[in-house]
Structures are given as structure tokens and as C-alpha cells.
Design a protein around this nucleic acid. Structure first.
Lengths: 139, 139
DNA sequence: ATCTTGACTTAGACATTGTCCAATGTAGGA
DNA sequence: TCCTACATTGGACAATGTCTAAGTCAAGAT
């Protein structure tokens, strides 16, 4: 993600302090933040950045395919900067931690033709749930 | 789902008009309603039912394993009464229609041991996305 | 059949997450 | 340096969900 800003500039993105900070937050720790968490982290470096800008910027990064939107719990969406490697997610049912995981085979092929009901199926997301080692230790 | 009410009563559920109506709404058309849609349908039969009760009742049905909570879009959760047959979902990216689908094989087995990071993995949800025949006709 | 009681329901306030808009600011080309 | 189209801001608004205190009622006990 280090050359992300250059890539985006090449696509006509205007490079502002706010966008730079949002991109840096995502690029930093490799976790899955919510929009408001990104806003909080960004505010540490650029105190007056607004929530609207963070939401706008995240939306643009998603549209541009640089970031993936993940909604595992029906609560706040989370943003995953690991958009260039195909992967799925493993979520702890207790603490909500999310890990990126890599699957055996292509899950698209698990959906038989007669089960496609004429849809042009183009995408599949797989979410595994369970208890993480940390949580099962402290149960 | 016809004997649902009996089953629930056997588990100590107090059988009220409100709960009966919510169960009937879910049992009726076999679609995936949001909580507020269930509330609207229920209000047709029992005008003074409150939103809180619908939310409570849906939550209880989910806890009891009689209904599945589906969040495909990060917006409102939807409620799927088809809890007793293992299935996954196929969603139209344009209009949001949801179909139940049945997979080939067990998706749990697609996650290799080293990709489980010590989690006790117990559940997997697979969501396919694409364009439904209706939407691709009217594009 | 009536009583009693704890579970259920209600209305509405509140919380969280996300969107929109008009006014203001500014990046980057001319 | 100046322009201007694009970006940012703050705050109102919207959608969804949660909580609480007070009133109501289902169903077992009498």
C-alpha cells in the first residue's frame, strides 16, 4: 500500500492532507477498523478532520478497489486494506477479532448451476466464525 | 414452522397475541424481511404492536434457533425463518433480492487447519452476489 | 372462576452508524 | 500568482437498533 497515494494521484485524485492521513491509518496497523475508528486515529494526527471526510474517503477507496468493505456483524462496517490479495475472514464470536484467511479451492465452484437461478454470479464472501484462542483461554 | 408456537410454549414461552402475529408473519410469505418490515406486516393484523416487541421477539426467535439473522448489506438485518435446513444466500447486487441456495460439499472443509489460527471454528456463512435475471433484463 | 405474579408490552427517549447539504477552503494546472 | 473545480467542514437528518419505567396480561394456583 506504500505507493497507494501515487497510484491514486495517477487516477486523478486530488491529494489532500485529510486523504493522506486516512490512507496512512489504513496502511499502519494491519487491522480492520470501523469508519469511526479510522476517524479517531486520523484525528490524532489531524485534529480537525471531519467525520464526513473520513466516510467520503473510505467510500472512494472502496470504489477504487483499494480497500474492501467488510460487514461481519450487522454493526459498523469495517475497512480492510488488504484488497489486492483474495481472501476471506475468520471472526471471533466473542470478541469480534477478525483475521484474514486463505481458502482451499474456489468457493464460487461450490454453487451448482441449478442453484444459481439465472443469476450472473460474480462474487462470493465466506465468513467463518468461532472462538479465538485468547477468548477460549479466558472462559 | 406450523408447530413453532407449540414448540416454543414447550420451552416456557408465554404465548401472547404479539408473538403469535410475529411468528405468523415470518411463517407466511417465505421471504427475508427486515425487522421494520415485520413490524409493518404485524401492524396490519395487530395495529398497536410496538417496534420494541417486534425487535424483542425476533431476538428471542434467533436465540432459540428458530430463525436466522442475515446481514447481507450492512444495512438492516433480515430474518430467515428457514432455520432448520442448512443453506446459504444468493443476493442480487442491484435490487437486493435474496434467495436461499444449497451448496455442494461443506464449506467448513475449505478452511485448512493452518489457516484456523487456533480458533474453534464452528460456523460458516457463504454469500454469493450477482445480478438477478430480472435486473439483467431491465438494464 | 378468580386471583396473583412475574413475564410481557408499550411509548418514547436515546445510541450508533451513516448520509446529505450549503458554505468555505484549497490543490494543482494555467 | 490566480482560478476554479473539487474537497472539506459541521451540523442536521435518516435509518436501525437498544433501553427503561410504567402499565398489562397469560397461565398456574387456589
Amino acid at each position: 500500500m506504500s505507493d497507494l497515494l501515487e497510484r491514486l494521484r495517477g487516477r486523478g485524485w486530488r491529494l489532500t492532507a485529510q486523504r493522506r492521513v486516512v490512507a496512512e491509518v489504513l496502511d499502519g496497523d494491519h487491522v480492520h477498523y470501523t469508519a469511526d475508528e479510522v476517524h479517531a486515529k486520523a484525528s490524532e494526527r489531524l485534529p480537525e478532520i471531519s467525520r464526513a471526510t473520513v466516510y467520503n474517503t473510505l467510500g472512494e477507496l472502496v470504489s477504487l478497489g483499494e480497500v474492501i468493505e467488510v460487514s461481519t456483524d450487522g454493526r459498523a462496517k469495517r475497512y480492510d486494506p488488504n484488497a489486492h490479495h483474495d481472501h476471506q475472514h475468520l471472526v471471533c464470536s466473542r470478541c469480534g477479532t477478525i483475521r484474514d484467511v486463505h481458502l482451499h479451492g474456489d468457493p464460487l465452484s461450490s454453487l451448482p448451476e441449478p442453484e444459481r437461478y439465472g443469476f450472473q454470479v460474480s462474487e462470493v464472501t465466506v465468513t467463518y466464525r468461532g472462538i479465538c484462542p485468547n477468548c477460549s483461554a479466558t472462559s
